[in-house]
Simulated scan of single mutants.
Amino acid sequence: MTANQNNLDEKDISILKVLEKNSKLSIREIAIRVNLSPTPTHERIKKMEKNGVIKDYTINIERKKIDKGLMVFCMIALNVHNKTTAGKFIEDTSKLKEVIELHNISGDFDFMLKIIAKDMDDFHTFFLNKLSEIEGIGQTKSIFVMNTLKENIPII
Rank of each mutant, 00 (worst) to 15 (best):
M1S: 14
T2K: 13
A3S: 15
A3F: 07
N6M: 09
N7P: 05
N7K: 15
L8Y: 00
E10V: 12
D12I: 02
S14Y: 06
L16A: 02
L19H: 01
L19W: 01
K21E: 13
N22M: 08
K24C: 13
S26T: 14
S26K: 10
I27G: 01
R28G: 09
I30F: 00
A31H: 02
N35C: 09
L36P: 05
P38Y: 00
T39Y: 12
T39H: 14
P40M: 03
T41N: 08
H42K: 14
E43H: 10
E43L: 14
E49W: 00
V53K: 01
I54V: 14
K55H: 08
Y57E: 08
T58R: 15
I59V: 15
N60E: 15
N60W: 10
I61N: 06
E62A: 09
R63D: 03
K65D: 06
I66L: 11
K68Q: 07
G69A: 13
M71H: 11
C74Q: 10
M75S: 14
M75R: 14
I76R: 00
A77V: 01
L78M: 05
N79L: 06
H81S: 12
H81G: 08
K83L: 15
A86C: 09
I90L: 12
I90Y: 07
S94W: 02
K95L: 09
K97R: 11
K97Y: 07
K97P: 10
E98R: 04
E98Y: 05
E98K: 06
I100N: 02
E101S: 13
L102S: 08
S106H: 12
G107W: 03
G107K: 06
D108I: 08
D108E: 15
F109E: 10
F109S: 11
F109A: 12
D110Q: 01
M112G: 00
M112Y: 01
I115E: 00
D121S: 13
D121I: 07
D121H: 10
H124A: 14
F126Y: 08
F127Y: 13
K130S: 15
S132A: 06
E133K: 15
G136E: 03
I137R: 03
G138W: 06
Q139E: 13
T140E: 04
K141D: 02
V145N: 02
L149C: 07
L149I: 14
E151P: 00
E151D: 13
I155F: 07
I155R: 11
I156V: 15
